[in-house]
Design a protein around this nucleic acid. Structure first.
Lengths: 133, 133
DNA sequence: GGTGTATATTACGTTAACGTCAACGTAAGG
DNA sequence: CCTTACGTTGACGTTAACGTAATATACACC
């Protein structure tokens, strides 16, 4: 696999996908919608460390329930390219909105964790009293 | 709206939906798939405090990116009805899995918040240097 | 030289979670 | 009595995010 000559940091599509537990279809789909843009050796896709990072960020977003468009927006925040003042301001706005969502999630997770603890305690209690039969 | 005679804690579909910012279609859909089961006054749905709570939990789940099936599972954890030992054990297992997911999310949120802070700092910096023009 | 194994493109299929009509019933108000 | 507001049940439509199958190319191995 991993070519020896150009070994710097390149990944075949299957290697990269195996690493992250996604299918090749997924990687190609992300390319279709412009979330990834690996270079090509002939026809074959060659993924760089940058591509890998982007995929990692996308999947992190998915674990948080973000849409691919949300992830795209967030990833774009890292390499702004924005020069216009209006763009910068709306970017800051977007950042704050995402942060608000995340803080709401933090709150929700805290509550849900409490609920789960109670539920677990109930189960364990039920198991004890049930063990007496 | 809110009937005066039976005012204990009842909600019409529109009232409940307005409160949570969802459409009536959503509430009816949740009923279709068995996530809500309001009582009826004639044909008309009457939502109780319990129904309200369930809706609240569903929406909390959504904010965390859970599927409706995940939310159903979690809500079922609160009123176990489980009597069988095997059921109790698999329930505990489910609880732990959900908790693992939540801890992963906590980790992800922490990292993402850091990233957003950096991005914001970059923006503000760019605004300063841009302001000199 | 056949037999895999990885790659590609194209294209139709699928699932969740609703949106969006349409068509109708009913109770209240002017 | 007519309108307005809110309620009901269908039922087809829609979007995101892939799954899946068909077909074709290229390279390694025995």
């Amino acid at each position: 696999m991993t070519n020896i000559v150009t070994a710097s940091t390149e990944y075949s599509i299957t290697d990269l996908c195996k690493e992250f537990g996604v299918t090749t279809r997924t990687a190609r789909y992300y390319e279709d919608i412009g979330l990834l843009s690996p270079s090509r050796r002939g026809q074959t896709r060659v993924y760089s460390a940058t591509d890998r990072t982007r995929l990692r960020l996308i999947l992190r977003g998915k674990r948080l329930g973000l849409s691919l468009e949300d992830s795209r927006q967030i990833i774009d925040m890292y390499e702004p390219g924005k020069t216009n003042i209006d763009q910068l301001n709306s970017l800051i706005d977007a950042i704050r909105q995402q942060r608000d969502k995340l803080n709401q999630q933090l709150d929700d997770i805290g509550n849900l964790l409490k609920d789960l603890n109670k539920a677990e305690a109930n189960c364990i209690e039920a198991l004890k009293t049930n063990g007496d039969k």
